[in-house]
Design a protein around this nucleic acid. Structure first.
Length: 118
DNA sequence: GTGCTGACACAGG
DNA sequence: ACCTGTGCCAGCA
């Protein structure tokens, strides 16, 4: 009822983002924009903020950029999980040259449906 | 209110 | 592969 000022949206929105992040099946990923669109609120930047602030306890590596570029600093950790979960990566011969592999968004992108195989 | 910044997205060079 | 500009939403000085 008499809600004088707006509530802090940090737990509300954050919890939804985190819930969806945990909802993402192994071997699959969602983009920041997809998460925002799936929730029907906020934008990719808000999702990014939530992940940066509260994404620690959740599989944050399953939320990536549309480019498929791994997070700077967490690339090694994320890469370990990807290889562990079998997430489709674009591992070209370049990877051996010292380049960091990117995600194969075409196959790794998840639409939010539990029965979605790809 | 204004301006900058950010785990973003897309188009162009 | 690299950088630039624009659009987007929210937080902060």
């Amino acid at each position: 009822m008499c809600r004088m000022s707006d509530e802090p949206e940090l737990p509300e929105y954050a919890e939804r983002v985190l819930a969806l992040t945990e909802n993402i099946p192994p071997g699959r990923v969602m983009t920041y924009g997809d998460v925002a669109e799936w929730l029907g609120d906020g934008g990719p930047r808000q999702v990014g903020r939530v992940m940066a602030l509260y994404g620690a306890p959740v599989p944050w590596w399953r939320v990536v950029r549309s480019d498929g570029v791994l997070l700077p600093g967490g690339e090694l950790r994320a890469l370990g999980h990807y290889r562990e979960e079998g997430t489709p990566l674009r591992e070209a011969a370049r990877a051996a040259a010292g380049h960091v592999p990117r995600l194969d968004m075409k196959r790794a992108r998840w639409d939010g449906l539990p029965a979605s195989d790809g």
